[in-house]
Simulated assay, not measured.
Amino acid sequence: MLNFKSIQAISIDLDDTLWPVWPAIERAEIALDNWLREHAPATAVLFADTNERAAMREHINRSRPELTHNLSAQRRETIRLALERSAENTALAEPAFDIFFAGRNRVDLFADALPALVFLAARYPVVALSNGNADIERIGLGQYFHASISAQQFGVAKPDARIFHAAAEAAGVDAARVLHIGDDALMDVLGALDCGMQTVWVNREGKDWVHAQQPHLSVVELNALCVLMAAA
């Protein structure tokens, strides 16, 4: 059970916790494909080949290990490599990525997400903690967050303890005073538990919990957490 009295800050995952990520990624991919067809047609053909695209991403992962946690840089460099292999202008990698990134940040919030953020932000410093590359300012949610920490900025990803401790530091509290909220059992819940944080598992799909360590609370929607907090 949650110890509500000890909570002094919130850290919260973004993708698949506040919005479904894959619809946004799919729209972004379509926007990128349309842009490439107009500005770099040979690259568009190469990029449309899923095997070729996967091979290029693997090449970037092997040749640029420093980009392991930087999804934006990985995407940008994969586009640049495709342009190079297609004998087209590699300078187009930047505007092409901008098209993708704009689409990636056009998300459809879960119905409970915004009311929950309003509720939480009125009571605690809230820190976004993500392995992805979503931009809360571009999405229009920046006002609800005290800070935002991503793996690509910090250099390590969840479930590494260091990024959880960075979130606690950003909120100005000890890790034991942070409640971490997220959808991923390993990355969010177990990672936060190992740091001494309290945890809420956002289990929208009703999955079974299969790990020995347990979250302090499991919810299908965030409003259930807010109701409990309001009553505490």
Rank of each mutant, 00 (worst) to 15 (best):
P65Q: 01
D13R: 10
L114I: 05
D174I: 10
F110T: 02
A113E: 09
S148W: 00
W19A: 09
P215T: 08
D160E: 12
S63P: 00
A111P: 05
V173L: 13
H146Q: 12
A24M: 08
V21L: 14
P41G: 13
C195W: 01
A42Y: 10
A24T: 10
P115A: 07
L190D: 03
P159E: 01
A121Y: 04
G132I: 10
V45S: 11
I139V: 15
R53Y: 06
E38N: 12
L228R: 07
V126A: 07
T43Y: 09
E66K: 02
A151C: 02
I10P: 02
V107F: 01
A28W: 03
L46Y: 08
A192L: 03
L120T: 06
I163V: 07
D13H: 06
K5D: 15
I12S: 09
L83G: 07
C226W: 01
L117R: 10
G142L: 10
V202P: 03
R85P: 05
V178G: 08
C195H: 04
N3S: 15
A48H: 14
L193E: 01
A44N: 11
Q153S: 12
L129N: 10
P20E: 15
W209D: 07
R27G: 07
T90Y: 06
L186T: 14
E58V: 00
E88Q: 12
V21R: 09
N3T: 14
G206P: 07
G103F: 02
N51P: 00
L129M: 13
P95H: 04
A147L: 10
H146K: 14
L14S: 13
P41L: 12
N61P: 00
L2W: 08
H69W: 00
P115H: 05
V220I: 02
S11R: 08
A91Q: 12
A111L: 09
D49K: 06
L179A: 10
E38W: 03
W22I: 08
P65I: 01
R104M: 12
D135M: 07
R104H: 13
E77M: 14
A96T: 12
G191A: 06
D13Q: 11
P23N: 09
V156K: 03
R53G: 00
K158D: 06
I136T: 15
G182C: 04
E205P: 05
I12L: 08
L228H: 03
A73M: 05
Q213L: 04
A151I: 08
T17V: 11
L109D: 09
L222I: 03
A82C: 12
L81S: 05
G182I: 06
A28Y: 05
A157H: 00
W22D: 15
I10F: 01
A121R: 11
F100K: 11
A82R: 02
V156G: 00
I7H: 10
A157D: 03
A82D: 11
S11P: 02
R75Q: 09
N3Y: 07
D188A: 03
F100W: 14
V210Y: 02
R123W: 09
T78H: 08
I149W: 01
L129I: 09
A192P: 06
R57M: 07
R57P: 05
D16N: 15
D15N: 12
E94M: 04
I10W: 03
I25A: 08
M229D: 12
L179D: 13
E88P: 07
L190N: 04
A157N: 01
D194N: 14
R177L: 13
L67N: 01
A87V: 04
I139E: 15
W35D: 00
R123K: 13
I30T: 13
